[in-house]
């Protein structure tokens, strides 16, 4: 008996990790991402046929510049939503970072690196407030961030002081849509967003801390019992989202004119959430990818810009954004149901 069983049992410990690793990690590219990529390519080809001006660098470049802040904040939002949270205060954080940085650029004429650092630091601080309240107050994230969004907005409007910020110097032009913002035709801001997505992809897939975010989103209690320090992780996730909102604020300053008005960032929270859910991240938590978010951001911006270029009413673009959200989440639901049945 013992002679028989020994050789049978022996390979198991060696084989087990391999099998479980494959089970834990989703395929490198998910179905949702392939579908999204196809949809974006089809849309670009169709738009290229109907409006010949679309598929030129003069049109695609600015489009990617506009995608950049949404994709960048989308990376943070993907982290947040994977942990089963949500952050509706990103627009307000962008506004506060943008106005403070712009004021310092005008008043103190600070150099570009310092401006970027200031913006990121402000975003980080605001995000940390969100994180601390959510992790230790144990109130649903949507309520906390609704509350802080109002407070942040007040803060931003105080700095605006009932007027616009005028005469912003071109310090941040290397993030803008003009020539200084491009190298070999690739906008710097979009390149930064792609690098952020790549780092986040690696982090979520292979880093221990990244995997723990999925665990927290899947089941917070189980994650805690498995030894994950849930609260510090959550603080960190919201702080990162804030920091990315700060960096996005720099891009918004750079892409605007020399005047910054109070509507900066307005409505961005919903656009970012739309990009994330179109990218296949589950709002219930525990599942999602940043590559999908990048593709989702490109899709949203393509639809909005494409409608304008076709000469249709600009507002019609958002109807299509809504339809794409329904289609993207709908196909995901169908596949999820099929997976469960299998």
């Amino acid at each position: 008996m013992s002679v028989d069983t020994a050789p049978e049992r022996a390979p198991e410990p060696a084989a087990a990790p391999q099998v479980s690793l494959r089970r834990i990690l989703p395929p490198v590219v998910t179905g949702q991402e392939i579908v999204l990529l196809v949809v974006v390519v089809v849309l670009w080809v169709l738009l290229g046929i109907f409006t010949p001006a679309f598929l030129t660098t003069g049109s695609i470049g600015p489009l990617l510049v506009q995608v950049a802040p949404i994709a960048l904040v989308g990376v943070g939002m993907t982290f947040v939503i994977i942990t089963a949270g949500i952050d509706v205060s990103v627009a307000a954080m962008i506004m506060v970072s943008a106005v403070v940085t712009a004021r310092m650029m005008v008043g103190l004429d600070i150099p570009a690196p310092l401006a970027v650092l200031v913006a990121i630091a402000i975003g980080l601080a605001l995000g940390m407030i969100n994180g601390l309240l959510i992790a230790y107050g144990r109130v649903h994230p949507i309520i906390i961030t609704f509350g802080t969004a109002n407070v942040f907005q007040w803060l931003g409007l105080r700095v605006f002081d009932s007027s616009t910020v005028n005469g912003i110097p071109g310090t941040l032009d290397f993030l803008g849509r003009g020539d200084p913002g491009r190298t070999l035709g690739v906008p710097h801001s979009f390149a930064i967003a792609v690098v952020a997505v790549a780092v986040a992809w690696w982090f979520l897939r292979y880093a221990k801390a990244g995997r723990s975010l999925y665990a927290i989103g899947g089941n917070q209690n189980a994650a805690r019992l498995a030894g994950i320090k849930v609260q510090p992780r959550l603080v960190w996730v919201y702080a990162v989202t804030g920091a990315l909102a700060g960096l996005a604020a720099c891009m918004m300053i750079a892409t605007g004119t020399s005047t910054l008005d109070q509507s900066v960032g307005s409505g961005k929270e919903l656009q970012v959430i739309a990009a994330v859910v179109i990218g296949g991240t589950s709002i219930i938590g525990g599942r999602g990818s940043v590559v999908g978010t990048l593709l989702g951001a490109i899709l949203v911006q393509t639809v909005v810009s494409g409608v304008t270029q076709l000469g249709w009413p600009t507002q019609l673009g958002f109807l299509f954004v809504g339809i794409f959200i329904v289609i993207a989440v709908g196909t995901d639901l169908i596949r999820e149901r099929a997976r469960r049945r299998a």
Partner: peptide
């Protein structure tokens, strides 16, 4: 969408927030 097809209500109403707002603006010509 939310009750019968199982869409998370946050997503459903985010989509229709965009959709209905867009229709209101387009139908009335702003």
């Amino acid at each position: 969408l939310s009750a019968y097809l199982g869409f998370p209500p946050l997503i459903t109403t985010l989509a229709t927030f965009y959709g209905y707002r867009s229709i209101a603006l387009v139908v009335s010509d702003q």
